[in-house]
Design a protein around this nucleic acid. Structure first.
Lengths: 217, 217
DNA sequence: GTCTATACAATGATAGAC
DNA sequence: GTCTATCATTGTATAGAC
């Protein structure tokens, strides 16, 4: 191990420190309310250092997004390679993405706050690479389940949305403010909760073995 | 009709114009990024007028919240007074609240952006009076359904969360950015879509008449 | 209730030396 | 790559006249 490697392990360089500082501040104060000055002070560097490594404040945000998109893509690829029933794979997809979310709650909070935030003045967000790919894959899996006769096929879109909602409600628990926790979101949700909620929805769309509606195929 | 009434109908006073301008700007640019200067210019008044009628920028936001909470409370009271099966009342609750949401998309967008936004620097938000009361009522209705034998009672919390998720995913379509629409959210959802998604979840938790698990009662 | 005028801190960003 | 010094701009908020 060279001296260079050792240094980069124990003492992250300015770019890494800037990115960490930015994520922490974006989470706490939001993208707009976080000033370049604060990011630099937290990272222990001066402003021109930020403008040198990243183009500007949005550059820091986009660097963070790049990491998130890459990690998300990797998870999707893993699930695509897995086999099993449609229900198994839907559960696997949701679990894996949720695990990623729970691993990086700050980054997800920042991304969500931009997603649900205003359009003007916010950094560009590569929706398609995040929610879009997840959505699309989930939709494919539902259709596959219908083709295989696993699921009822009377309203594929509603099934897709109900599953997405189940995932969303668990992810939303990341945004709980402990000071004002309420109702269903008195505690953050874990993977176990996700499994139960997804399972409840899947139970409803499973093709009944005896009786019940049956269609196409 | 007095001259005063006529005036207030055709030419809303400074407070109303300020509130309308603020909601529009908060929606487009976000709470933090909207300046007092802009609100006043849009409303056609000068800054001291805003500081006179509302205490400051947050005062304008809280005035908007007050209207939203009042309207929401009224809807909940109407549904509480209604009768029917638990499933009927759950559907009614979701439909009525969704109708309110669709009536005031801008206000909901602003509230959501604060809910999902950062904690520091954001205006205080009376969660309990909005999501909290809705959550609590929905939970009561699910429990009522189990007591009556309408629903399976093996996982009341998961049922509650699945229903909440179904509502959430429909509401989330308000945040679609037409420029970057993706997957399931290519079009905004309407009341018909909500009914289908809620219906799909309800189908899954309904106590089977013949076969299937049956419990407590 | 509404105005003009202003105080004063903080912002994103850069020039130019080292 | 990193620094010091500085820029123009915008932010919230108020004093005091009418």
């Amino acid at each position: 191990m060279t001296e260079q490697d050792l240094k980069s392990l124990n003492q992250p360089g300015a770019p890494e420190r800037l990115l960490d500082a930015a994520v922490a501040l974006f989470t706490r104060k939001g993208y707009h309310a976080t000033s370049v000055r604060e990011i630099c002070e937290t990272a222990g560097v001066t402003k021109p250092v930020l403008y040198y490594h990243y183009r500007n404040k949005e550059g820091v945000f986009q660097a963070m997004m790049g990491l998130a998109v890459a990690a998300h893509r990797e998870v999707l690829a893993q699930v695509r390679a897995a086999d099993g029933s449609a229900a198994d794979r839907i559960l696997l997809l949701c679990e894996r993405v949720m695990a990623l979310v729970l691993e990086h709650p700050d980054i997800v909070r920042v991304i969500d706050s931009v997603y649900y935030g205003p359009r003007e003045g916010s950094p560009a967000l590569d929706f398609e690479s995040l929610y879009g790919e997840f959505d699309g894959f989930l939709s494919e899996l539902v259709q596959e389940g219908v083709r295989r006769g696993e699921f009822r096929g009377d309203d594929v879109e509603a099934t897709h949305l109900a599953l997405l909602g189940a995932f969303l409600i668990c992810k939303a628990s990341l945004h709980i403010n402990p000071a004002t926790a309420h109702g269903c979101h008195e505690r953050p949700m874990g993977l176990g909760d996700l499994r139960r909620v997804i399972g409840t929805v899947l139970d409803g769309v499973r093709a009944a073995r005896a009786g019940g509606k049956e269609e196409q195929r």
